[in-house]
Each structure stands twice: as structure tokens, then as C-alpha cells.
């Protein structure tokens, strides 16, 4: 039996197939004059349109190809509609071996990975136009989003109980997500805070480090002392902290590191003078013997 859905898609496919033949036949400049001399052309071009150009000629290849492609796509979908009998409930129930087809379940869980996936595609799009690094970053993000999405998709349908589904998903994914997320957060904090320490003067960096450590310590004590503090407040605090760390990192990166190459950190040894006797920070020998060896003064003095 040809179902209603299949009728539409088969009808569309047939229409496009006829259109393809008509278009392939007529768009080649065929002469429609009904004289014996032209019958050969008519036949030649009709044969081409009917045989996908295997025998004879086809007019506009692009239009002919698009119409044939459309016909093939429609016919394929129509075949699926027939095979699944329009997904009517009775055939579905028969296939499932149940008196009635099982109903669909709405998804209750919140899952931002679809949104992150879309964002990753946007990052790739920017990368295609600008820099390859964006493409790599977007592809990594898209891969993670696809994996998480797939996991959610499985878990959402694992059982009929949303709570059990969430628990199942968490049991599998949390051992992966928590360390990974922790590592990313640690990396993020280390990168951002290190920008700040590299930017401010040496002494200030020490005091800042002490201040930040004290602030974290005091906040942790306060939270521990008030266990009934609302979750929203803790979340808000963490969000503010994350924004602050990000802002610090960006500000530090934009400002750039302080100047490390200065007079105090240069070191000279007694010698003949000139650039070869100048030792800069990072290349300073730590022992007298090493100084003499590096400078060659021991041999010079001995000579």
C-alpha cells in the first residue's frame, strides 16, 4: 500500500523526474520544427535525457542534474515512508510487539551542549575566515560537545525515570568530567593569575599573592561557618570570582609583563671590559669557579 506521505514524496519525485527529462530534452536548443530533418535531433536529445546522457545529449547539465537529484532524494524519502508505513501507530505497535505504540518522552534535563556545539561551529566559521587556531579550538570544542550531547541523548532515553537517567549519566561521565573540568579550571586560574604576577612589580606580586590567598581562606572559613548560605549566593560568588580572574588575566595579558632586564640584575666581573664581560640575568654563573671558567679569566690570569 502506498501511504499518504509516500504519495507526496513519490509524486514529487515523479514530477521532478519528468521535469528533468523535459528540461534535459528541451534546454539543448532543440528545433521543434516538425520536418523529417529535425526528427534526428529530437530523438538524439530525448535519448540523452532518458539515459542520463549515456546515449545522446542533454541540454543544461546543471538544471538536469539538480532535477534528477531532487527526484532521487524525494523517491528515497518516499521509499522510507512506505517501509515505515508513514510511522502510523498501528504498524509501529506491531513492530514493537505491543498493543499500542510506546509514546514519546519529553526531555526534562537541561543540557547546554547543543548550545556549546552551535558556538563551536561559529568559532570554526570565524576560523575559516581568519585563523587556523580558531578552527582547531572550534573543532576540539565541537568534538567535546558532540560526545557530551551523545551521552545525554543516550541517558535521556535510558529509562522512563528522569532522575535515574541523570544518575546513570553522571556515574559514567563524572569520573571523566570532574578531573578534566578541574584541570581546565586550574589551568585557567594559573594562566590568569600568573599574568597578573608578571605584570605588577616584584614586591607587589608577593603582597598580592598573600592577599589573594588570605581572601580565599577567609571566604572558605565564612562559607564553612554558615552552612545554610543559599546555593545561589555561592554560585554567584563563584561566578564573580571567575569573572574577576578572567578580567585579571586579560588585563595582565594586555598590559604585558614588567621589564626584567634592568641594572640590578646585571652582573659584571672584573676583566678587560667590553660586551664579552657583561653577564645578564638568566646567564649568571653561581660560583666563583664557574665565573672564572665562563669568562676565561682563570687562564688569562694564570698566563
Amino acid at each position: 500500500m502506498i501511504t499518504t506521505g509516500a504519495k507526496f514524496y513519490f509524486g514529487l519525485g515523479f514530477l521532478l523526474l519528468v521535469a528533468a527529462v523535459l528540461y534535459g530534452w528541451t534546454s539543448g536548443g532543440v528545433d521543434w520544427g516538425l520536418f523529417p530533418g529535425h526528427l534526428g535531433d529530437l530523438y538524439f536529445e530525448m535519448l540523452g535525457a532518458l539515459t542520463l546522457g549515456y546515449k545522446g545529449a542533454v541540454g543544461d547539465h546543471l538544471g538536469y542534474g539538480v532535477l534528477l537529484g531532487g527526484a532521487a532524494a524525494s523517491t528515497t524519502i518516499g521509499s522510507f515512508m512506505v517501509a515505515f508505513r508513514d510511522a502510523d501507530d498501528k504498524p509501529l505497535a506491531e513492530v514493537a510487539g505491543l498493543p499500542v505504540a510506546p509514546p514519546l518522552q519529553p526531555v526534562s534535563s537541561s543540557n547546554v551542549w547543543a548550545t556549546i556545539g552551535a558556538f563551536a561551529v561559529a568559532v570554526i566559521a570565524v576560523g575559516v575566515a581568519t585563523s587556523g587556531w580558531f578552527i582547531i579550538a572550534g573543532a576540539v570544542l565541537l568534538t567535546i560537545a558532540a560526545l557530551e550531547w551523545a551521552m545525554y541523548a543516550w541517558a535521556d532515553r535510558a529509562t522512563g525515570d528522569a532522575a535515574v537517567n541523570a544518575s546513570l549519566r553522571n556515574k559514567i561521565m563524572n569520573p571523566i568530567e570532574v578531573p578534566l573540568f578541574g584541570a581546565i579550571v586550574a589551568l585557567f586560574i594559573a594562566l590568569s593569575i600568573s599574568r597578573l604576577f608578571l605584570t605588577v612589580p616584584k614586591l607587589s606580586a608577593t603582597w598580592l599573592f598573600l592577599g589573594i590567598a588570605a581572601l580565599i581562606f577567609v571566604t572558605a572559613i565564612a562559607l564553612a561557618a554558615a552552612p545554610k548560605v543559599p546555593k545561589a549566593a555561592v554560585r554567584g560568588l563563584l561566578a564573580l570570582a571567575a569573572i574577576a580572574v578572567l578580567a585579571i588575566g586579560i588585563a595582565g595579558a594586555v598590559t604585558g609583563p614588567r621589564e626584567f632586564h634592568n641594572e640590578d640584575e646585571e652582573f659584571t666581573v672584573e676583566g678587560t671590559g667590553g660586551p664579552e664581560d657583561l653577564y645578564v640575568y638568566g646567564q649568571v654563573p653561581t660560583t666563583t669557579a664557574a665565573v672564572q671558567e665562563q669568562s676565561g679569566h682563570s687562564e688569562k690570569k694564570g698566563e
Partner: peptide, 28 residues
């Protein structure tokens, strides 16, 4: 083993009307 016990499958009601569980929990 990922679960301590096998979660219960939803078995459609074999009555006249299709089984539809109680209203699902509201999303966040």
C-alpha cells in the same frame, strides 16, 4: 558495572489508551 541495580524499564500499559507516565518534571 555502572549501576548497582538495573533501572526499571517503562512498560506501556496494555489497556485501551497508550501509556503515558505522570507529567514529567519541569525543566530548569
Amino acid at each position: 558495572t555502572v549501576t548497582e541495580s538495573k533501572p526499571e524499564e517503562v512498560v506501556p500499559d496494555l489497556g485501551a489508551a497508550p501509556a503515558q507516565p505522570a507529567l514529567p518534571p519541569e525543566p530548569p
